[in-house]
């Protein structure tokens, strides 16, 4: 590395941060701070790795930092700048530590498990209803009546009532939701609803009704068939 060895990495880190924080949200939802931190930390790691590959590059990268901090032969503005850094940096660390540990009215960052493990009695169940066009149609009909107000007529989680929920209803057309799961899993979630979730699934954060109160098992199985067909997904199987 030659002159400006510190400038380029600084620009890169700031550039990546600005891109993630401000540019990307122009096209999609904003990223949470945890993810931005992760990507910026990876960038910084890469910079340090690349900068320390050889003796020359290490000197080019760390030399100015070491010389600046040691204060050798410094005078005037540079000396003041060094003192400022030596005072401000610990204050910054202190402020960061305080702000991350001090009590706040903000709820803590959420760590909810969206797909917790199902109870043992639901493991290994298979859909007893034959997968015929009639049953799929019947399932879609039941879906339209009971599920679509929240999960949407297009199976995309954007039903007319969806805007009232946080977290929002699941989007079945997303390949990372029901396509990852077996039918028995959906049977459990529909039958037992939000209150049937385990603690890590935060049952208090799900508005999913306990449909066993209103629907027979046979109807639930048909809804599952209708959901997969309507969302153009296939359940996870082992054959």
């Amino acid at each position: 590395m030659k002159g400006g060895s510190l400038l380029k990495p600084a620009i890169l880190i700031v550039g990546i941060y600005l891109f993630l924080k401000f540019a990307l949200p122009l096209f999609t939802a904003p990223l949470p701070a945890s993810l931005i931190f992760l990507y910026v930390a990876l960038t910084a790691t890469g910079i340090v790795i690349f900068a320390t590959l050889s003796g020359q590059s290490t000197e080019a990268f760390f030399g100015p930092i070491t010389r600046f901090l040691s204060g050798e032969g410094q005078a005037g503005a540079m000396k003041m700048a060094r003192l400022l850094v030596l005072v401000l940096f610990p204050l910054l660390v202190g402020w960061q530590t305080y702000s991350s540990t001090a009590p706040s009215e903000q709820p803590p960052a959420e760590n909810r498990t969206i797909h917790p493990a199902p109870p043992g009695e639901f493991v290994g169940l298979s859909n007893p209803i034959p997968n015929t066009p009639e049953n799929v149609m019947a399932g879609k009909g039941l879906y339209a009546a009971f599920c679509s107000p929240c999960h949407g007529g297009n199976f995309d989680g954007k039903g007319p009532a969806s805007r009232g929920f946080n977290p929002p209803p699941a989007n079945f057309s997303d390949p990372t939701t029901i396509a990852m799961l077996q039918e028995s899993y959906l049977f459990w979630r529909i039958k037992k609803g939000g209150v049937g979730l385990s603690i890590e699934g935060m049952p208090w954060k799900s508005a999913m009704p306990r449909w066993e109160v209103e629907l027979k098992d046979e109807q639930i199985w048909k809804i599952i068939m209708g959901e997969y067909d309507g969302a153009h997904q296939k359940p996870r199987t082992w054959e």
């Binding site: 999609t28 939802a29 904003p30 949470p32 903000q106 960052a109 959420e110 929002p168 990372t176």
Partner: peptide, 29 residues
Amino acid sequence: MTPHSLVASLEEARKMGGTHHPLLGVFGV
């Protein structure tokens, strides 16, 4: 290292429409 369900504050989760990010959520599987 990108998780499927992201660690997010209530406000961040609301902006994302849940704890799955609409774009980067696909990295989680």
